[in-house]
Write a protein that binds this DNA or RNA. Structure first.
Length: 595
RNA sequence: GGGCACGUAGUCUAGCUAGGACAAGGCGACGGCCUCCUAAGCCGUAUGUCAAGGGUUCGAAUCCCUUCGUGCCCGCCA
């Protein structure tokens, strides 16, 4: 795992050298060594803390430590202000970076030596209609994280927790069985989720207008839960006055809508490893077991017939009676709630994984905290981690499926791909129709995913078409373009060098900068994974592409007359190509060979 | 009422977890670069009380406190 990474090796060596001198000067001090912001040095020793202990000027200490340190062929030292700057020998370091990358090209990401089982739950949107852009960050963050864990060597599975027992779904089911399709507007897309969402929307309208509809839906919900609990999937759950609905129809409806939703995910290069249905944890008795367990808790209280955990001693905040801190886990009629089923699911999940990560909208913060507390109360030694994201909003405000004030993910994607197509056609007249299609799709999907992942999840995003579909500057196409350029050079240069080139001919600053940049890949991936900060990869790849563009500008490859140097530069292109395509792969963005 | 987030140039963001040298990019604006490996690129110019105030520190965008603004949540809904 990252053995022999030059960045780590050099900084460890520098620290050791500093420590050697410091042991005689101020043995108790732990030196502060960091990477300086400005260019011109690779590391610096911050001398202010030492100055404070020794009660001498930092500037003086910096130069004194500098002169006391033994000469090392790997670097040059220079005192500046209160800092002792360390600049690596440029050719030596670049050569080491290149050699490291070349030797590890096929397993650059691996950072764990023993696989740990990780389950990442994400998306988990109610199966009642197409995805809208408001929650589009969820599958993108979740899938990106999954890909990164996998690249880093973890054993990882992504799970979609399907809510097939909630009211939203029952509204949809009621609608499908009670509304005449002829009365509905034609669907905007021939896809199950788009076809069926109109039933959901119309059912909502009828429910708001007619209280008896809501009563019927609630009753269906109750009968459905009993049927599932008792294994009676064939049982009729609807009442006298409305169309006959069987328990199994609910699951069928969910699966139909989900088929459509899976299609949207696949279009985004998002693939789930498994779908876990809520009804499954009810059916197999997990929910019942959880309820029994919670009833034994010292925090358990009963009011009416309902049971809850009293969390007022744990959760902070005001104790006004209107804002009770209760984790209710059974209704007075004895039935379970969503949170109870969620708890059962998590208990099972934590049992089969070392780490469980949930990608959740910011509206789930409170609930997620409650869930964690309930798990602890049940004696679970593990609690899921949560990665929260803020919603994508429209310039005019929040999106809502119910009120039909949405941008559908499918529409956004289609627009992105068609916008990409016009860009491709603008530049390339030599491509076949299929090639144009393929490049447009890769660029369109990439632009979309990049835009959603580049921002820290907890920061809000306002959706604007012109930003989302901007193909210039810090964007996926910018990175893909550099990749395509590298591919083109390699192709025209006769393919990647069969053997490791002699890196000794590296002279140009932009060659060295490119290598320094690229060698950061394993470290960035590690930070993305262990810090659960997938957005860092986006910025890193922009930097890589930018460094490659500098190299491209300064260093002709195919026109280079000196054969070893030409080979070395094709080697550099190969390294850049592979690091960029690995990084893009982590982001679920395809790297075109040509564009 | 309370809890939890967020606030960085016209605009969008990085940097904040682990405080360090003049706050880094993108878009937009303006001006340049295709007889040379893909101009989705490159070069240059202009733009900032890092929301405000206080504190800790040799040093604060970063840590602490207060205030303001925005969003989310506080159901025997999911």
């Amino acid at each position: 795992m990252n053995q022999g990474h030059p960045g780590i090796l050099y900084s460890q060596a520098f620290r050791k050298a500093v420590l050697n001198v410091l042991s005689s000067l101020a043995p108790e001090i732990e030196p502060v060594i960091e990477v300086p912001r400005f260019e011109g040095a690779d590391l610096c020793l911050v001398c202010f803390p030492i100055a404070k202990v020794l009660r001498r000027p930092p500037k003086e200490i910096a130069s004194e430590i500098g002169t006391m340190m033994e000469d090392d062929p790997r670097w040059k030292l220079e005192a500046a202000g209160g800092y002792l700057n360390c600049s690596y020998d440029p050719v030596r370091y670049a050569t080491d970076c290149a050699h490291y990358l070349w030797s590890n090209l096929h397993d650059l990401g691996s950072i764990v030596d023993r696989p740990r089982k990780v389950i990442i739950e994400h998306t988990s949107a109610n199966p009642n209609g197409p995805f809208h852009v408001g929650r589009a960050r969820n599958p993108i963050i979740g899938d990106t994280l999954t890909r990164m864990f996998r690249a880093a060597g973890y054993e990882v599975g992504s799970q979609y927790w399907v809510n097939d027992m909630g009211k939203q779904v029952m509204i949809l089911v009621w609608g499908i069985h009670n509304i005449d399709p002829a009365l509905l507007p034609p669907p905007e897309r021939d896809k199950a989720d788009h076809r069926l969402v109109s039933f959901y929307q119309e059912a909502n309208r009828r429910m708001e207008a007619d209280p008896s509809v809501e009563l019927e839906i609630n009753s269906m919900l109750l009968h459905y839960e009993r049927a599932v609990q008792e294994g009676g999937r064939d049982r009729v759950i609807s009442g006298e006055g409305s169309a006959k609905v069987k328990a199994s129809d609910v699951r069928d409806a969910c699966e139909s809508v989900l088929e459509g939703m899976k299609g949207s995910l696949a279009d985004l290069n998002v693939f789930m490893d498994s779908f876990v249905y809520e009804s499954a944890v009810v059916e197999d008795g997990k929910v019942r077991t959880v309820i029994e367990g919670l009833k034994r808790s010292s925090l358990c209280r009963k009011e009416g017939g309902a049971y809850y955990l009293d969390l007022s001693g744990i959760l902070s905040g005001g104790d006004d009676d209107r804002f009770r801190k209760r984790f209710v886990f059974t209704r007075s009629d004895g039935t379970a709630l969503y949170t109870t089923r969620d708890l059962a699911y998590h208990l099972w999940k934590l049992n089969i994984a070392d780490v469980a990560i949930n990608v959740l909208g910011e509206d789930h913060r409170y609930q997620s905290r409650m869930l964690g507390l309930a798990l602890e109360e049940l004696g679970s030694e593990k609690v899921p981690e949560a990665l929260f994201y803020s919603f994508v909003s429209l310039p005019e405000g929040k999106m809502s499926t119910r009120r039909n004030k949405v941008v559908f993910l499918d529409d956004l994607l289609e627009e992105a791909i068609s916008r990409a197509r016009t860009e491709v056609l603008k530049r390339r007249s030599d491509l076949s129709g299929e090639e144009v299609d393929e490049i447009s799709r890769k660029v369109g999907v990439g632009a979309l995913r990049f835009n959603m992942i580049r921002v820290q999840p907890e920061k809000p995003i306002t959706f604007r078409w012109e930003d989302a579909l901007n193909f210039e500057g810090a964007s996926a196409p910018f990175i893909q373009y550099s990749h395509a350029r590298a591919c083109s050079i390699i192709r025209k240069g006769g393919g990647p060098p069969p053997d490791e080139p002699d890196w000794g001919s590296i002279v140009e600053a932009s060659e060295r900068e490119l290598l320094k940049r690229l060698v950061g890949y394993p470290l960035v991936l590690k930070e993305c994974v262990s810090g659960r900060r997938p957005h860092l990869m986006a910025g890193f790849l922009v930097d890589c592409a930018s460094s490659f563009n500098d190299f491209y500008r300064d260093c002709p490859v195919l026109l280079e007359g000196d054969a070893p140097r030409r080979r070395m530069r094709i080697g550099l292109c190969t390294l850049a190509r592979d690091v960029i395509s690995d990084g893009l792969h982590c982001l679920g963005i395809e790297a075109p060979q040509s564009m």
